[in-house]
Amino acid sequence: MEVKELIINKVKENIGEANIEFVDAIGDFSIIVKKEKLFELAKFLKESPELEFVMCKDVTAIDWATRKKRFSTVYHVYSFKLNFTLRVKTNLVVEPYKVESVASIWESANWYERETFDMYGIEFVNHPDLRRMYMPEGFEYYPLRKDFPVMGIPGSLPLPQKPE
């Protein structure tokens, strides 16, 4: 409990109470932050001497497939000092779906953000190397969006011809 209170206090103090929301459910603790404040929060989480969330374990997104709230990006960060995994979420509501990249704060976010871009088409602003991670470069769709069929779009990925 102490750790959570510490995080709540510190974050409230530095980011402002209006921009954040705390959720504690199913054994995980998460912070929901406004999109504009994400970069600031990330920088604070890493650089604050009390918290030291130095490792970014994961970056992903969720497609809610509703018009009001289309995407959320989710970050899992870990602090060796507190031995605590924290989840940071931010909602992307309006098109175009853009969010500030955290790759300059956590180096590991580089590939995770590329993966998220590949799968969801969310653009990470100021990302050093935003390319597709898995799918071929010329692929036009974003597979993990809910409007993409599991079996794909026929003809979008051509096969070589069978030899005689």
Partner: peptide
């Protein structure tokens, strides 16, 4: 979407 359904296609 990404797996070839049988290599006998090519």
């Amino acid at each position: 979407y990404s797996v070839v359904q049988g290599i006998d296609q090519f």
